[in-house]
Design a protein around this nucleic acid. Structure first.
Lengths: 166, 166
DNA sequence: TTGTATTTTCAAAACCTTTTGAAAGTAGTA
DNA sequence: TACTACTTTCAAAAGGTTTTGAAAATACAA
């Protein structure tokens, strides 16, 4: 396969994957482009490569920086900003886990804690409490699991985690 | 907190969570409603409770059945169909993992395998292969991890998995 | 300071997904 | 068979998100 075709396929697929993971399509494509670029890229190069507008490029680059997946790099003598991707996949995963844990898991745990204080002992109330407690247990497990994952290093993941499962 | 308020809050939150997880808002709300219902519900009851149209209810109930998260139940003497949710949270998670693994992880692994056959030895090609190999490693780990999770039982998750991470 | 390259903003447009609800289809009952 | 309760379909509408691009802002250089 030719390099250019491979690059395009990779960028497209990464975009599709991202859009299932709370990262918008373009944001994931920008990330993919930077991932496979040996050199930092300027906004204009990103716009050209992905055929997107300046507004779009700017917004998604900013978002990637917020997520900690992309860094700004200034070259001496150049006025414009260049961007590089976080290329350590383990770090990429950690960054995404941190964001999603904060935006999704923590809010639902908060709600589960609140609604489990429900009054009454009708069948509806009993069923409700039962289901909520159950989910709460899982949510808390997931929370500590992810917390552990965020704090652990790649060695652990590649070694123990996989071997254990099999 | 009153039961009704708690139920509404739970349904709303479950809907929001679902929408971040490839399950559309209404689909997750229907699932939440069935989860906390001690009795099977008919389509009409779901439509009334969530204030949604028949088409919407029908489509999302079907989707939940496809995912294996909801089952049809026929009551003797009743013409209409009733629906119950899968209430075992472990099974719920397994079902979702199965669907998403098939729809997201497997396709990207396929693409990664294909594009890693790239030709050339320019810096671009080298960087490309390097990044792709790296992601491929993670994707394959994730695949076997999830495969293991799908095959394992809850006891394992609650016991070993959590303790191990800490 | 002025000029110019670059970045940022944001309202409007384009795009994509979800929902509606009327009509058609289905199946049990008489 | 015809009736009725219920389910399914699907084109159109609504709703939500993303993208565009012109204009404004910024920041360096002369």
């Amino acid at each position: 396969m030719q390099l250019q075709e491979a690059q395009e396929r990779f960028i497209q697929s990464w975009g599709t994957l991202g859009s299932h993971w709370g990262i918008n399509r373009t944001m994931a494509q920008v990330h993919a482009l930077l991932l496979i670029s040996p050199e930092p890229l300027a906004a204009q190069q990103i716009m050209d490569a992905l055929k997107i507008s300046s507004g779009n490029a700017n917004m998604n680059i900013r978002a990637l920086i917020d997520w900690g997946l992309v860094f700004k790099e200034l070259k001496p003598g150049e006025r414009k900003e260049f961007f590089v991707a976080e290329k350590d996949m383990w770090e990429v995963i950690r960054r995404i886990v941190i964001q999603r844990k904060k935006k999704e898991l923590e809010p639902i745990i908060k709600v589960l804690n609140e609604v489990s204080e429900v009054e009454g002992n009708s069948p509806e109330a009993e069923e409700f409490v039962h289901v909520v407690q159950n989910i709460r247990l899982f949510a808390q497990k997931a929370d500590s699991t992810l917390e552990g994952l965020v704090k652990s290093d790649q060695k652990w993941f590649v070694g123990t985690f996989l071997n254990m499962i099999k």
